[in-house]
């Protein structure tokens, strides 16, 4: 009889698993929704449920960044060609944000190589590149979540060898609600427009 019960239980797990998952998802979702005062808008990246790890080995959900203007770029730390220039672009943008508005702007670098870019490695990279203040956030997530996030940013990337990736060089600006406000494409392009958009949004 005991075995029958175990079997029944097994059957239930098989049948209900996806449903259960959904219920749990819904529950945790409602709890989190209650925490937020404002509903998340339709086009907001805060609709993405993914969990990320920062350079300080802290787990965060994107929506914890809500209320900030976000400047985002996707890179990988072992990159030798374009990424140093993208990183330089990010630093150049950061340096043009007035001191008074700095607290409302987060500069975010998302790794497209989560296997190699451990939190320790990201931390080291942040120190080497003088991106130590709280304003800089490095994120790494699962391969799937990274692919999904890139899909949202319209960033394309592909692993082209064990060490290297091809990727689009795009810097994206998101407003306080998490909606895409501006994108700058290419390397070493004039970032005047990007900077003025950030200043306009941050208040």
């Amino acid at each position: 009889m005991k075995s029958t019960i175990i079997l029944l239980f097994g059957v239930c797990i098989l049948f209900c698993s996806c449903h259960e998952e959904k219920k749990q998802e819904e529950q945790s979702h409602t709890i989190k929704m209650e925490k937020e005062n404002q509903p998340i808008s339709e086009l907001s990246i805060y609709n993405l449920p993914s969990v990320w790890t920062t350079q300080n080995n802290k787990e965060i959900e994107l929506k914890e960044l809500k209320g900030n203007v976000l400047v985002m770029v996707m890179i990988y730390t072992s990159c030798k060609a374009a990424c140093p220039r993208l990183v330089a672009d990010m630093r150049s943008i950061a340096s043009q944000i007035p001191e008074a508005k700095k607290n409302n702007v987060k500069l975010i670098l998302v790794s497209i190589d989560p296997e190699t870019d451990t939190p320790q490695r990201l931390k080291k990279f942040s120190i080497e590149n003088d991106m130590k203040s709280d304003q800089w956030v490095f994120l790494r997530g699962s391969k799937e979540d990274t692919r999904e996030f890139a899909a949202v940013l319209a960033v394309n990337y592909k692993k082209i060898s064990p060490m290297d990736f091809s990727h689009s060089n795009i810097i994206s600006v998101f407003d306080q609600k998490g909606e895409l406000a501006h994108q700058q494409e290419g390397l070493g392009v004039n970032n005047k427009e990007t900077v003025s958009k950030i200043i306009e949004l941050a208040h």
């Binding site: 374009a82 960033v155 795009i170 494409e185």
Partner: peptide, 16 residues
């Protein structure tokens, strides 16, 4: 570089 444009192999748009 950006998924909606059709410029091929611009080394400023892509790494590698």
């Amino acid at each position: 570089g950006e998924s909606r444009k059709d410029v091929d192999k611009d080394s400023n748009l892509f790494c590698g």
